[in-house]
Amino acid sequence: MTVLDLATAERALRVHELAIRRRLDGLLHGGRLGRRTGPGAELDDVRPYRPAQDDVRRMDWNVTARAGEPHVRASIAEPELETWVLVDASASMDFGTALMEKRDLAVAVVAAVLALTDRPGNRLGVRLAGGADPRTVPPRPGRQAGRVLLRELLAAPRTPEGAGLDLATAVERLHREQRKPGLRVIVSDLLPRTPGERLDWVVPLRRLGARHDVLAVEVTDRREAELPDVGLLTLVDPESGRRTHVRTGDRRLRERYARAVADHRAATAVAIRSSGADHLVLRTDGDWVGDVARFVAVRRRTARYRRVR
């Protein structure tokens, strides 16, 4: 795997953007219901016409003919959507053994969210947390502003060894500072900073979900799930700098490691579901555009089913 320079990464993003828009465009259209009546595509009700207040172009002539008096169609307004993406910029994201590093996949996720929420008036902001240069890019409308945002993410300096992420604090801060209801996306590998660390980000994530639609995107690499049998291997924890020599030829050790990783990921999935957030797992060696498209399609069908019930 080759680490992309800025120019190469921007070219790759342009290709990804075409793929994203071709495969995802329209999947979310009409999938978000507003909280008030007004101009929009979602029909709410039919009511009597009010002179000088209603637009005659919204007249429902069939109901008018049956009722014997003018009626208009009232629709549900499509509100402006403010989206915030919390991106894990800790040292553990600078890892990848397949098509890209996890940090590159995180930027690709931001590009996908940007494409999915690209509607007039919608805005997207990003918060980088846990890295060498924590920063907040305020939400701005427009596709050009989105491309500037992606370039800033691509140009962000690589994280020095020892820089970790306190995800619970980052989520709590996002909840406290960005109060306007909207969409919140958390992009992280969700790895524990220490062995046996509790998932203390669950409560802040639940608070976040009480006000916003929340999506947790877990980015993974295949080499994190299992140890290869390559003899004596030196492993370095990027967030603590600690080095460990591992005899990977020990079959029982490899099995224990794989079991521990599987248990952690299962516990993470249960914790995210219990918080009420949606959960999407993406891999550095997978078809992430296809995975996002399938997730959005399923989410839309589920939302429609819930409305029907």
Rank of each mutant, 00 (worst) to 15 (best):
L116F: 03
L190V: 04
D166C: 03
P138H: 14
R304A: 15
L233W: 15
L232P: 00
A168R: 03
L205Y: 06
D5K: 06
E69R: 15
A77E: 14
G182A: 12
P160A: 01
P120F: 02
H29Y: 14
R273S: 13
A98T: 10
A267S: 10
K102N: 08
R247P: 01
P238F: 12
R127T: 13
V185L: 06
H245C: 04
L253N: 03
L154Y: 00
T248Q: 05
R135L: 03
L81S: 04
E161M: 04
L24V: 08
R179Q: 07
L149F: 02
E101M: 14
R222G: 09
E42Y: 10
G131R: 01
L86A: 06
E226H: 15
V261G: 03
E218F: 07
R32N: 08
A19S: 14
V308T: 12
A303C: 00
G68T: 08
W288T: 07
H16P: 00
V203F: 13
T8C: 05
E218K: 11
D213T: 10
R242A: 15
F295Y: 13
E10H: 10
T169I: 04
D55Y: 09
A112C: 10
A210R: 14
G196P: 06
L149I: 02
L13C: 05
H212P: 01
M100F: 04
G38A: 00
E226I: 13
R36A: 15
D229V: 05
R176K: 08
L124H: 04
R21P: 00
H71Y: 12
A98Q: 12
L124D: 01
E17R: 15
R151S: 09
E69V: 06
V281S: 08
R283Y: 10
D25G: 15
A112R: 05
G121A: 05
V110C: 09
R283C: 05
V246L: 13
R179P: 00
L114Q: 12
P238R: 12
A112F: 03
V236E: 05
R143L: 12
R14D: 10
R304V: 14
L116R: 00
S275V: 00
R36D: 14
A258L: 05
E152C: 01
E80Q: 08
